[in-house]
Design a protein around this nucleic acid. Structure first.
Length: 592
RNA sequence: GGGGUGGUAGCUCAAUCGGUUAGAGCGCCUGCCUGUCACGCAGGAGGUUGCGGGUUCGAUUCCCGUCCGUCCCGCCA
């Protein structure tokens, strides 16, 4: 029964050896007299040959009964494929002439064709355990293993301890919606699954662990995206007696090692750094993709006094911005249909519309906005944006963030569509000096942009209570090719500052004690200065694997509605289970 | 919560303006086949057109609702 080799390793040097292989039947080519089988295991593919003269009648009979994906074990002799080499196979120089043949298990016909990349992801997810037999999913699993192995080695060398923190955790009012777990022992009370090990890792610093990391599962009950799963994995890091520079150095070293060992690529360190404000203004994103240029242009001052009300209103409003994107030489490719799509995309971010102007040979505009602007005004805009014949200008006017983000989105779409994104380039970047807080447009309440334990820039400390909006945070994101890989901050280690922060967030003294008493207490017992960051492991692997969604690099992913097609979770539970937990469902009806 | 997009045989897709018995390739089943490599050849089986309702003489096709997949906005410290 036991294998002597795997299906990927036999070469000409093995010719003449007696070997035993086991695996799955990938294809059977039965000529009536002789039979060829492709035998697959996780390491590769080997051709097996059966011939009545050497294999015997019993083996021939058994082999003629196998179908795709039957599990078999064969014993035989390696021989060279004289004149019949298959150069497409790693093992194509040889084949195994079977002398015995055993079926270990049968298989029903497959619900989909393996290796057919057109099969719907829906079906693949339902039969995820079969999709692992495909190289693409298998490679994701393999690459993920290598990344985490490499990271563990790195942190170990740097003196970090890997510490596990609880999954049954405490609900907090800040941040994402929690997944809740009812307590049977304490009827009516709930644990929360951790959105991140944030508080625990800070408490480890208070405890003097000094250097902590964890490959930690995190849970957030929010709507999903291609790059967001309800449960995901963070590479969580925290250090004491450090500043942001130490974090940059650490992460740059980590990613350098991972890129080298997993991809064989030498990346440049230190990474480029850019403030949040600069990233938004130049690229319309707090996670800009620097693999191509296509920078935004700020027209606010240029159009502040022009004759076009849509522009002047935004340009003179508080926090207003008029932004432009010059798609150089792409006027011809920007079809009416394309422009309409862009307009809809821009509107989804908030602006009422998108102004477009194709630049004529005489530098005049082909644009529905032309009649609202004087020739001088158009010349000024041309000058500012560097517009030349054949270009198309896209202009959005709204609040700073919405104008920038709307055009930033078009920037990435256009770059992908018009082939401006180079392959196999990895552009790392630190985005720094995030605002500490952001204001809810409707309620006026302040919320932490990163999280409520983030320390303000020391120079802004005194402004925290009087003018929260201008305070920047000691927070940083690491970005790769337009994806936020992770982020972190220097934390608050002073209980008075932490209490001020909760005050600004509108959390009452009573609630502070109830929800965060343990943190405030801990900070009062000699908390060292500390900080850290968390990397999205799934996203790291996704980018390294060139995958389009997180689902491809998570062994058992959820759908965009947070269900598992394989196990059919979530699902109803027995009435008794609910009764034990003192829970009654108020769901209006059960799905049919 | 909102918007886009898709759902027809096991799989991938087609089906004209609303019109005959809903087709093709692959897969599956049977038979033949001694150098294939997604072998080949011949034959055969296989359909609640996601589900529910409506319009119509007639609906895969048009309308309404709903479910599921997917992408985006909001949301995600």
């Amino acid at each position: 029964m036991k294998r002597t080799h795997n299906c990927g390793e036999l070469r000409s040097s093995h010719v003449g050896q007696t070997v035993r292989l086991a695996g799955w039947i990938r294809a059977r080519r039965d000529f009536g007299g002789i039979i060829f089988l492709d035998l697959r295991d996780r390491e590769g593919l080997t051709q097996v040959y059966l011939d009545p003269a050497v294999s015997g009648a019993a083996a021939m009979e058994t082999a003629s009964q196998v179908r795709d994906e039957y599990v078999v074990c064969i014993e035989g002799t390696v021989r060279a494929r004289e004149g019949k080499v298959n150069s497409k196979m790693a093992t194509g120089d040889v084949e195994v002439v079977a002398t015995s043949f055993e079926i270990l298990n049968k298989s029903r016909p497959m619900p989909f064709t393996l290796e057919d990349d057109k099969v719907s992801e829906e079906l693949r997810m339902k039969y995820r355990y079969l999709d692992f037999r495909n190289a693409s999913i298998l490679n994701g699993v393999k690459m993920r293993h290598r990344v985490t192995k490499c990271m563990r080695d790195f942190f170990d060398n740097q003196g970090f301890y890997e510490v596990e923190t609880p999954i049954l955790s405490k609900s907090t009012p800040e941040g994402a919606r929690d997944y809740l777990v009812p307590s049977r022992v304490h009827p009516g009370e709930f644990y929360a699954l951790p959105q991140a090990p944030q508080q625990y890792k800070q408490l480890l610093m208070v405890g003097g662990i000094e250097r902590y990391f964890q490959i930690a599962r995190c849970f957030r009950d929010e709507d999903l995206r291609a790059d967001r799963q309800p449960e995901f994995t963070q590479v969580d890091v925290e250090m004491s007696f450090i500043d942001a520079e130490d974090i940059y150095l650490l992460v740059e070293g980590l990613m350098k090692k991972v890129m080298k060992e997993v991809k064989g690529i030498d990346i440049q360190t230190p990474f480029l750094r850019m403030t949040y404000a600069e990233a938004m203004l130049r690229y319309g994103s707090d996670k800009p993709d620097l693999r191509y240029d296509l920078e935004l242009v700020d027209l606010t001052s240029t159009v502040a006094h022009c004759g076009f009300k849509v522009l002047t209103d935004a340009a003179t409003a508080k926090d207003g911005k008029v932004m432009a994107l010059n798609l150089k030489g792409l006027a011809d490719k920007a079809t009416d249909k394309k422009v309409k799509e862009w307009t809809e995309t821009v509107k989804s971010y908030g602006p009422k519309g998108l102004i477009t102007a194709k630049i004529n040979d005489d530098l005049t505009w082909k644009s529905s906005a032309a009649k609202f602007l004087t020739a001088d005004e158009m010349v000024a805009i041309n000058g500012k944006t560097g517009a030349a014949p054949g270009d198309i200008l896209l202009i959005a006017a709204d609040k700073f963030r919405t104008s920038c983000e709307a055009l930033g989105r078009i920037r990435t779409e256009a770059a992908a569509e018009f082939g401006l994104v180079p392959d196999n380039v990895f552009k790392f970047l630190w985005v720094v000096e995030f605002p500490l807080l952001e204001q809810d447009a409707e309620t006026g309440h302040w919320a932490a942009m990163h999280h409520p334990f983030t320390s303000p820039m020391p120079a802004h400390r005194h402004l925290l209570k009087q003018d929260p909006g201008v305070v920047n945070a000691q927070a940083y994101d690491v970005v790769l090719n337009g994806t936020e890989l992770g982020g972190g901050s220097i934390r608050i280690h002073d209980s008075a500052l932490q209490a001020d922060m909760f005050d600004v967030l509108g959390i009452s003294a009573d609630e502070q004690q109830l929800k965060f008493g343990h943190i405030l207490d801990a900070l009062s017992y000699g908390a060292p200065p500390h900080g850290g960051l968390a990397l999205g492991l799934d996203r790291v692997v996704m980018l390294l694997a060139g995958a389009k969604s997180l689902r491809e690099v998570i062994a058992f992913p959820k759908t965009s509605k947070a269900t598992c097609l394989m196990t059919q979770s979530p699902s109803l539970v027995d009435a008794k289970q609910l009764k034990d937990l003192c829970i009654a469902s108020t769901a209006p009806e059960v799905k049919g």
